[in-house]
Design a binder for these strands. Structure first.
Lengths: 130, 130
DNA sequence: CCGTATCCTGTGGGATACTG
DNA sequence: CAGTATCCCACAGGATACGG
């Protein structure tokens, strides 16, 4: 997702979709939201739960989501600092889709992989058909 | 979405979600899929319907989606070439989520924008609080 | 009309090191 | 523990021109 830098893009009305996709359609947002479905989590817990995410990206992603009002951030002034992130009302309205998407992903992963590798094999089998 | 270049990323099991998100979570895939909800469309029609997409990206996106078996491509050997794209069975199973997502986007766009701009204003009001 | 081939830039995002 | 600060570059993706 590059060069979205607020182009003119008049976009009749489906623009709203683009706009929101530019927000939650990045590499980690949906994953983070889905991870918070059970309840609040600390920074470190999220880091562990969302496998593969870097500290930097978790910070940034959380920042955006808090900014957009999808999750809330609560910092407890304790000795080892503790910060908890939790879905807001708004964030929770997004949850059903995230969960559906995740389930769809799990259910059809194999099929998609099969499709694409079979197609690749077909192309490789005919070295020069152009 | 950069450097997804098939990292090792062991990811316990939510990896399936990452994998699928890497496919349909790009800038245009969901938009294209949503646009095909009514039925088959020609290349040019898609280009017009998906506001803002470049010819190149439409070609690439369609290519991936066909590869993954989410949409089908039918070329008619006519004088001005005609090519139609249509959701496959698999692709249609994804439609409910895409539509929900789009509706959610339209419904909450304002709210999200309000959240973020109010926050930005707060920061700007205090020019030097660092 | 439907692409494909190039070229080129912006930026997403990882790695690493440092603070309160 | 929970970030911030830098550095850095692979690559998404726009613009443009050409081809069947």
């Amino acid at each position: 997702m590059a060069q979205v830098t607020r182009k003119p893009v008049r976009i009749p009305e489906g623009g709203a979709v683009r706009e929101v996709l530019d927000r939650i359609g990045d590499k980690w947002s949906l994953l983070v939201i889905g991870t918070l479905r059970e309840g609040p989590l600390r920074f470190g817990e999220l880091k562990d739960a969302v496998a593969g995410i870097s500290q930097r990206m978790l910070t940034l992603t959380l920042g955006h989501l808090v900014e957009d009002g999808l999750i809330s951030r609560t910092a407890y002034a304790e000795v080892p600092p503790r910060v908890e992130y939790e879905l807001t009302e708004l964030g929770r309205t997004l949850l059903p889709m995230v969960i559906s998407l995740a389930e769809w992903a799990m259910a059809h992963r194999e099929e998609i992989n099969a499709n694409r590798t079979s197609r690749i094999r077909n192309e490789e089998d005919r070295p020069d058909e152009r």
